[in-house]
Design a protein around this nucleic acid. Sequence first.
DNA 1: AATGGGACCTGCGCGC
DNA 2: TGCGCGCAGGTCCCAT
Length: 276
Amino acid sequence: MPELPEVETMVRGLLSRVKGKQITDLWADEKKLIHHPSFRLFKESLIGQQITNIERRGKIIIFHLQPKGFWLAHPKMTGHFLFLESKPDDDFIKEKSVHLSLSFSDKTFLAWSDQRKFSRLEYWSVDDIAQIPWLRQLGLEPLKMSFAEFNQLIEGRRQRIKSWLMDQRFIVGVGNIYASEVLWLAQVNPERPAGDLSSNERKKIFQGLQKMFKKAIIKKGTSLLEYRDIEDQKGEYANYLQVYGRKGQPCPRCQGEIVRKMIGSRSTYYCPQCQP
DNA sequence: AATGGGACCTGCGCGC
DNA sequence: TGCGCGCAGGTCCCAT
């Protein structure tokens, strides 16, 4: 589900709602969502700890815990947090596909909802997130990198630009919606080999990505299907999408017909007329 | 090296 | 109304 703007929105909500809180209890019904370490150790490790900070790395939410370790949540397609003033009851759990719920010492609660159950939850008993092996394989943050770095990463890559943008080993946070959108903004065909793009095209993609993500964060992300922030509210960026989900409609720029094409098994939307 | 297909899941909208 | 199909903000694994 969520891409960078949606995860960033979740993190901002979590910072305002649960930073500093003490975890007093944990309930979970889906052991399969907990990938590391065992379910029992995960539960034992979280209870009693304080959440001292929350940050985002790509599409991953990282809770800093005191006295020890980090709790990671990867939402995948439909995972998201819900902040609650009262304990989730059975009806709520069922209706919202809640699979885990934390109790805090101030009698507030944090639930993890995940309709499709692809999400991952992990606890790592390390002193530094740099010690978590797979996190190290992530690429650069698009809002904290320079064009020179972008240029260096794209140089010589033979993948199609859309697949390259979504490959988290180069830059993080771009998923299926925003990949189509940024290529429309830059007027670049999604099937162009990444390394073949001109300097001007690369620049338009890089700058477009930063501008689009900043705006999408301000609008609290894109809610097409399932995505909600931790207050269970929709994001507004769907109102600003130019091509995603608009097959057959006129291009907002040139009135050409927007097409949908599968690229790397993912629906891709673009305007063949102004993204030749 | 890059791509395609399938797997992991649940639920919704569509056409018949 | 009921049913089957296609589709969904992600990633991983295997085959070619």
